[in-house]
Design a protein around this nucleic acid. Structure first.
Length: 422
RNA sequence: GGAGAUGUGCCGGAGCGGUUGAUCGGGCUGGUCCUGAAAACCAGUAUAGUCGCAAGGCUAUCAGAGGUUCGAAUCCUCUCAUCUCCGCCA
């Protein structure tokens, strides 16, 4: 959420940003509502002041004071009702104003405007017809999509045998790696309240992509970003404790409401997956935030390099970034069956967009307070990463090699070309 | 799921209709003293909104939302959270 002051003083900038992100906002309406709001607040304040003065005289029960008191009560009631209406309307409109991208972000309507900034690794050349992870999964009894659909529904899956072990080992490996870099390990709840979802900017835009439970205010998180960024909501942190770096693990649930017919086969687009996420709560300083953003980026690239998976890094253009974001890198990993890079990590600077909604501040040395900045990047999401892992490492004999770094953890160095029952 | 209790500032803990944003104690920050430290003493120590160039004023906030009243931390209703006991259960 942007502050009304910022909107007022940067009207053109905000308007342009919304346009570049393909969003419509009515800033004139917002500013005029804000004017009305402030007038009403002033009127209410004057009345309350008078009421307080009368009350302090301590006149009991009847007399002139109580007559005026009753008048004030009525006038105040009317003003407060008007104010509530305007405030509600204003809050709703402001909550829809997207964040302003940084100057270096390419301006474009859609994904075609994303720019590749870096590439790593060699795309494997197979001297045989490589299988997709679906075929491999079936041949080696690693993935059961049929029974997944039978039991869980569309996009359901079972991971079995070595794939199940690999899935676990990847999380553990990545978790430990980031702990060694002084990220605080945290396991986050997946059942969360709308506060978190609104605070992170998932709502109001992404409601149709979020599972709502039957309880009054309970949703399934789409990412640990939501619970973990909200962790300090309503709190004031100490400047000396910033930045707070988390490595968070949680299940993730997504309805994929807008994705019917997209990536319907295999492990690419699922309703339910697990993820290790990096989350940072930082000072309100864009230069520092950019450094941390690069750190988050370096971490996820290091993970792909450890795993020996070829990838490229994209800077996302205005039209392909979310509303809360100021700058975003997507890291895409090579997936042979797609003959393309597929998104595996997403790294964003949110500025104070989320922290303003969540009311996360920090106290500076001079005693004043300011909204924090928030950032987050995937560390590893599985099963999606298994696509790259299984497909890139497959061998002519039908087996699949395991990256060195995981071998000790999983207890084998290859998935043999035979159905194993572990 | 059933029964009961409780929710006050960074923490502990008063207050139970009328200058209470809130006694007091602790903590924290600054200062005095001291070779240094401790102790002691002095001062300061919430957040948000709003008006103002500023100094500063005003308003709101005692879990949250409503209500009663001229006036609410104090009374009423609902919600939420926590604790204890029973039941169930990884």
């Amino acid at each position: 959420m942007l502050s009304l002051d910022f909107i007022r003083n940067n009207k053109e900038k905000v308007l342009q940003a919304a346009k570049n992100k393909g969003r419509q906002v009515d800033l004139d309406k917002i500013l005029s509502l804000d004017d009305q709001r402030r007038k009403l607040i002033q009127q209410a304040q004057v009345l309350r002041e008078e009421r307080n003065k009368l009350a302090k005289q301590g006149k009991p029960h009847s007399g002139e004071g109580s007559v005026r008191g009753r008048q004030i009560k009525e006038e105040l009631k009317k003003i407060e009702d008007d104010l509530t209406k305007i405030q509600t309307q204003l809050d709703s409109l402001v909550s829809f104003v997207p964040n302003v991208p940084l100057p270096e972000v390419p301006i474009s309507k859609d994904a075609t405007g994303n720019k590749e900034i870096r590439k790593w690794g060699k795309i494997p050349r197979f001297d045989f017809k490589p299988k997709s992870h679906i075929e491999l999964g079936q041949a080696l009894d690693l993935i059961d999509l049929e029974r997944g659909a039978k039991i869980s529904g569309f996009r359901g899956y079972f991971l079995k045998n070595e794939a199940a072990i690999l899935h676990f080992a990847l999380f553990f490996y990545v978790f430990n790696k980031l702990i060694k870099k002084d990220y605080l390990p945290i396991i986050a709840p997946a059942v969360i309240k709308s506060l978190s979802l609104f605070g992170c900017g998932q709502f109001p835009w992404g409601e149709q992509d979020t599972y709502k439970l039957n309880d009054e205010d309970a949703y399934l998180a789409g990412t640990a970003e939501q619970p973990v960024t909200s962790y300090y909501s309503g709190e004031i942190l100490n400047e000396k404790d910033l930045p707070k770096k988390f490595v968070a693990f949680s299940p993730c649930f997504r309805k994929e409401a807008g994705a019917y017919g997209k990536d319907t086969k295999g492990l690419y687009r699922l309703h339910e997956f697990w993820k290790v996420e990096q989350v940072i709560i930082a000072k309100n300083n864009i230069e520092e935030a950019k450094k941390l953003h690069e750190e988050l980026q370096a971490n996820c690239e290091e993970i792909l390099q450890d795993l020996g998976l070829p990838y490229r890094v994209m800077i996302m253009c205005t039209g392909d970034m979310g509303e809360p974001q100021m700058k975003k890198y997507d890291t895409e990993t090579w997936m042979p069956s797609r003959q393309a890079y597929g998104e595996t990590m997403s790294n964003s600077i949110m500025g104070d967009f989320q922290t303003r909604r969540l009311k996360i501040k920090y106290r500076k040395k001079d005693g004043s307070t300011e909204y924090c900045f928030s950032l987050n990047n995937t560390a590893l999401a599985s099963p999606r990463i298994l696509i790259a892992l299984l497909e890139n490492y497959q061998q002519k004999d039908g087996s699949i090699l395991i990256p060195k770094i995981l071998q000790e953890l999983v207890g084998f160095d290859k998935i043999k070309n035979e159905i194993t029952t572990l």
